[in-house]
Computed example of a mutant assay.
Amino acid sequence: MTHRLTPTAALLLTIPPLLWAGNAVVGRVVSPLISPMTLNLLRWFFAFVLLLPLAGSVLRKDSLLWPQWRRFVGLALLSTSGYNALLYLALNTSAPINVTLVGASTPVWMLLIGRFFFGTPASARQMLGAVLSIGGVVLVLCRGQWELLLGLNLVAGDLYVLLASMGWAYYSWMLAHPTPESAPLRAHWATFLMGQVVFGLGWSLLFAGVEWTVTDARLQWGWPLLAALLFIAAGPAVIAYAAWGGGVARAGPAAAGFFINLTPLFTALLSAAFLGEAPQLFHALAFVLIVAGIVLSSRRN
């Protein structure tokens, strides 16, 4: 399949960073009410319930999902469960600015994994686009004051983010290289996502079980938590993952990776909105750099 960054692909790839930014803001708001692994488990349980009317048929005994269970176990580990688990672990030991900064390496991992595991070489234009895009993220994180970067101290949590970024990059390349057997399941986004959620729930249950066994886990039910769960299940989980899969299929994983760097920008803008702060000039400059990296990397020779 020929990959092109069409307006439709760009829209599909912009939706997930916006929703994931909302997820970060909501996650911070409800953090006193629920432990991170438990939040991730309930998030995907609610997503499972939402998908059931749309893709419940994939759970039947004669479904094509079960002969491909190994592939979907891997997809689920790299995306719905493992990726978020690593990010939550990172936030236990690493500052949010570090987590976002290290996560900005995703476009580079997209290019390197494509080169070494999927035989897709990275061009000089794509590498330059990665530099521009990461520069935009750094500009947001330091709020236009470059000297703030000198105060960064890398800790163990940053390694978790690095692993999460590498896993997400590999996951995206797997989406772009489906097996012939998975074609019927990919024909409908809800069916394909349900296949990942089913096995992702298994991984998430395992991680939550460990959390409740070895840590001081917490869960305080109430309308604020329920509303948050409904949002992160419908938006950052179901809609975002469906849009990401469609965008990667159209634009390819290398170009798609650059859109992830819109997440910290959207997070900064949403946080500013909730805190009543007006956007600053550096937000606009960062947006220009990130978009320039996307456009440059996706241009054809």
Rank of each mutant, 00 (worst) to 15 (best):
G202T: 06
W69A: 15
F207E: 08
M1S: 13
R4E: 10
L86T: 03
N153H: 15
S298D: 10
I294E: 09
T106M: 14
G151D: 00
Y160D: 10
T93D: 05
F45H: 14
N153M: 10
K61E: 02
L230D: 09
G200I: 09
L59H: 06
L5P: 03
L12S: 04
A104W: 02
A251N: 05
S123D: 09
N98Y: 00
A164G: 07
I290E: 01
F46G: 06
M1W: 05
A286T: 00
S94Y: 07
L59I: 05
T263N: 13
L289V: 00
L270Y: 01
A254W: 07
F287T: 04
T2S: 14
S297T: 03
Q145L: 00
H3P: 00
Y170E: 04
F72T: 05
R43E: 09
V138F: 07
G252W: 08
S165C: 03
P178H: 01
L11K: 04
A242R: 13
L162Y: 11
Y160H: 13
S81W: 04
L270Q: 11
G245H: 12
F192G: 05
F45C: 15
L39M: 13
T100F: 15
L111W: 02
G22Q: 02
A190F: 12
P107M: 02
L50Q: 06
N92K: 15
D216W: 13
P107R: 06
V131P: 08
G119Q: 13
A292M: 02
S94G: 02
W44A: 01
V161A: 05
A104S: 15
A122S: 14
L64V: 01
L270P: 08
W146H: 08
D158Q: 06
A286K: 02
S57M: 08
A169R: 04
V99P: 02
L59F: 10
V102W: 10
L77Q: 01
A272G: 12
L51E: 03
M174A: 13
S298F: 11
V26Q: 06
W44P: 05
F199Q: 08
S298L: 11
L52R: 06
H177Q: 14
R4I: 04
L13D: 07
L132A: 04
Y241M: 12
S271C: 04
G200K: 06
G103P: 07
L275I: 07
H177F: 13
V131N: 09
W221A: 15
Q220G: 12
S271T: 14
L5G: 02
S182R: 12
L230Q: 11
A21K: 05
P17T: 06
G202P: 09
L12M: 11
T213N: 13
A254P: 10
A273C: 05
G276I: 06
A164D: 09
W244D: 11
